[in-house]
Computed example of a mutant assay.
Amino acid sequence: MTDTEARTTSSPTTRVPSQRSSPGTPTPSPEHWLGEVLAAMGCRRAGLKWQCPAHGHTGLHSAALAIGRRDDDRGAWLHCHAGCSVTAVLRALGLRPNHLQRPPHITPSRYVHLRGLRREWPELKNAAHPERAGYRHEAWHLYGPDHAKQRMRRADGSKTMRWESRNARGEWVPGLLGTREADLPLYRQDEVRMAAAASESVVLCESESSCDALHGVYATTWAGGAGSPPVETLTRVLEGADVVIVPDHDDAGLACLARLVVALPHARVLVGELGEDAKDLYDRVGLDRFLEQLASAPTAESRGGREDFRSHAG
């Protein structure tokens, strides 16, 4: 056999490329790779959320883990709505933070197999739409261009809220897509900025329904309830504005007021009768009297930081 024949007939040792590295197979984006890993693990999915591998493998629970593409296109983000940290989720997946930008160069199914991540997952809670529980639409409340809260109420007066958000394709889908309520803008924030620039008074109350009811008055609130006012956002947006805080006159509302006056010491305070919120006070006294009370409301600073606001009912 000649040297030429030997070179042409011998079988060289070659490495067969994996499916991921094959020139004809596109590399999945990090968020798609993560989703395929969760699917290969057996995680259940409800809408845009998955069972969270950091906590969702025991007990009855709702799908909580959202995955998406970062706005700067530099990888994926993770957010567990049940409170698990990104570190905890990555640890449960056997991944490091840099894998959110560049996942391991291996197919998701093989990764799950090699890591031994496949397991049985519990059933999800029945995530029935509120309408099935007798709730009916009452109002939509927009928080910026990409988030909206729907208020729904039953005949017995009980209410519930649900969120929808605009995804990267411009579609409105359920949930906040990983955004925290504390990071949302204030309700009607653009109007509030215009009012502040025009030296108009701005009422800060506890609910969107109160804001909507105060016709002829600039009013705002925040996405969370009385227990979680976003102090940093309120301070930043309302700095320099003539703010009048009109809290709900109950224990939770007065506790919230105590936190607000620390963040906004120059704000003025108007408290209605026991049990009233801003809407109730407005309905009871009418627009003209309400405006008079706003104009004469004393500042929180002038009352002293520890004063009991129950004694200042309108």
Rank of each mutant, 00 (worst) to 15 (best):
A66Y: 06
A219Q: 06
C52D: 14
A155P: 00
R132Y: 08
E206S: 13
R284V: 04
M1K: 09
R115N: 10
G94R: 01
S158D: 12
G227Y: 09
D242L: 02
K279E: 12
P23E: 03
D183V: 03
T8D: 15
C205W: 02
M41F: 08
R289P: 03
P145T: 07
T160M: 12
P174A: 09
A148L: 07
D242I: 01
D250T: 01
E276C: 01
D156E: 11
K49M: 11
L60D: 09
W140F: 12
L176Y: 03
R74Y: 05
S201E: 07
R91F: 00
D277V: 00
S207H: 09
P185M: 03
R70I: 01
D283H: 15
G224V: 01
M41P: 07
A252L: 02
G134A: 04
V89L: 11
R154C: 07
P108S: 08
Y282P: 04
A82E: 15
L204F: 12
R44H: 13
T179S: 12
H32E: 15
A300C: 11
P145N: 11
K159I: 08
A46S: 15
R166M: 07
H215V: 13
D71S: 14
R259K: 15
T233Y: 00
A66W: 02
L100G: 00
K149I: 03
A213L: 01
I245H: 13
L100H: 01
P230R: 10
E138Q: 13
G305V: 13
P145L: 01
Q293I: 05
V202G: 03
Y187W: 10
G35C: 05
V271Q: 04
G253V: 01
L93C: 01
E301N: 09
S18N: 07
P108G: 07
P23G: 08
G178H: 04
P17G: 04
S296M: 07
W172G: 06
V37W: 02
A66D: 07
V231P: 00
L38V: 01
A195K: 02
R102E: 12
K49R: 15
R310W: 14
A148S: 09
E138L: 11
Q150A: 14
A263K: 02
A196F: 04
H32L: 14
M161I: 11
C43W: 05
